[in-house]
Design a protein around this nucleic acid. Sequence first.
DNA 1: CTATTTTGGATATTTTGTGTCCACAATATA
DNA 2: TATATTGTGGACACAAAATATCCAAAATAG
Lengths: 148, 148
Amino acid sequence: MQVQLSTEFALHGLLYLAANSGRRPIQLPEIAQAIRVRESYLRKLFQQLVRAGLVDAYRGAAGGYSLKRDPEEISLHDVLAAVEGTADLYRCYAEQRSCRVARPCPIRGAFAQAYDNFRKSLSRTTLASLLHGEALQSEDVEWLHAPV
Amino acid sequence: MQVQLSTEFALHGLLYLAANSGRRPIQLPEIAQAIRVRESYLRKLFQQLVRAGLVDAYRGAAGGYSLKRDPEEISLHDVLAAVEGTADLYRCYAEQRSCRVARPCPIRGAFAQAYDNFRKSLSRTTLASLLHGEALQSEDVEWLHAPV
DNA sequence: CTATTTTGGATATTTTGTGTCCACAATATA
DNA sequence: TATATTGTGGACACAAAATATCCAAAATAG
Ligand code: SF4
Ligand code: SF4
């Protein structure tokens, strides 16, 4: 039970987009270099982010990526869901094990509720709040803001 | 990000112990058959549970396993921690990627807090509350209670 | 048309989870 | 003390998932 590396990479990429918005779409090589993730891998992640509706992609010359929604509207949970999906945290093998516990199984319930709390908590932090909200006021965030 | 199958198995095993306490230690083959998990695999899991301090093991003839603490004192979180460990949910590759964000990184913070909420939530459900608390009042729990 | 940039699929590599086996240590009890 | 029983620890095999790379094809600005 750990957050995937992919999620960290995607998140950093999105933060870079958020920090450098307003300009034209940003190409993948620039993002990859800025957040120090290999291009070929980050490329796959951004394809997922496009499909998940978090970023817009523009093909062809002068193409690239830009956020589809405002940074205020993209939460950590959105990123996690886009990269890792939203499957149940607790997979139950009831059928395969002939378990006859009543349908609303309390074990499943307990895990589902805990997972829900987790996601609600993640939903409260957005790209915007990380960049210039209460969260990140340190001086050191320049590397996130600086265009490469 | 999913709860491991191992955790489900361990949890069911512990519930069986809790449901059939009072008697002498219970041998592994009985537990395995009751919860329908292969003996050789469950054996490894119970070794972890012993090390984690959730159950006592007795070797030799008429040996077996029994809960080390009261069912009221063993929470879902205890089980999860025993089987899957307590490593940070969000592993950050700051060093390897020359990230210069200030030490108390808000991203890490947000994930840590969400994880904390998750674990707090899991801590509120115990073996006891699952077995005869508000949680499991269904008729169908017999399979958990019944000695094999 | 051409140079550029993303796309989608295929595929390779590494790590983690799942599952088994067995020689050995510990112990009840006869 | 001898013996049958039961857990221990380590090694190992296998499967699944995560990580990572590559490239031909599609789209598009200029
Ligand atoms: S007790 Fe609940 S979690 Fe366990 S197998 Fe039955 S339905 Fe699934
Ligand atoms: S921004 Fe935070 S999470 Fe990302 S690499 Fe730096 S310290 Fe780690």
